[in-house]
Amino acid sequence: MIVSTSRINCTAKYGAIDGVEESLQTYVNHHFIRSFEYLLMATHYANYEKNRPGFEKLFRGLSDDTWKEGIELIQYITTRGGEMNFNLVSSEVTAEEVGDPNFELYELNSIAKALDIEKKLAMEAHKIHAEATRKNSKFHDPEISSHLEHEFMAKQRDIIRKLAGYTSDLSALLNTPDNSLALYLFDDYLQKQ
């Protein structure tokens, strides 16, 4: 018997990957954009005038993480039978380009910026998760929601908590008589993390 492969669905696609594929592709591109932004923030702290190796390490770490997660997300999309599209970026993220964004920030502002970025990434994961949990066969896909929960949510929770803690510490430390010394010590602390 001749089996015509064209009549059988031989792809890896099942469930609702089609329903969230574009959201996932956009999410990948956002990871790479953030990775480059964190790299710029790390670069700023590594110049001889700023000279804060602890801050550099923090942002470099965030840049490495978002880069790695971007690659893993591409691998995930293709595991589910999808493909990557590098052109998709959300209108919110595109809108950030207006007025030449600045990544050369003071210490407290830079951590607040990172916290902001991480919260945006976390909320985006929530949004995709919500799409994949809709009780509608076009969207319902427990495998995708579970993947997001395991690979992203817990990690994002921890980063957000860590950065929020840093902003609390820094605001308190900067409110002391010698904030230059406070920043030096805080940078030293970051370096050892």
Binding site: F32, T43, E97, P101, F103
Partner: peptide, 8 residues
């Protein structure tokens, strides 16, 4: 530094 890398 901010203009070192194009965004996308």
């Amino acid at each position: 530094v901010s203009s070192l890398i194009k965004r996308n």
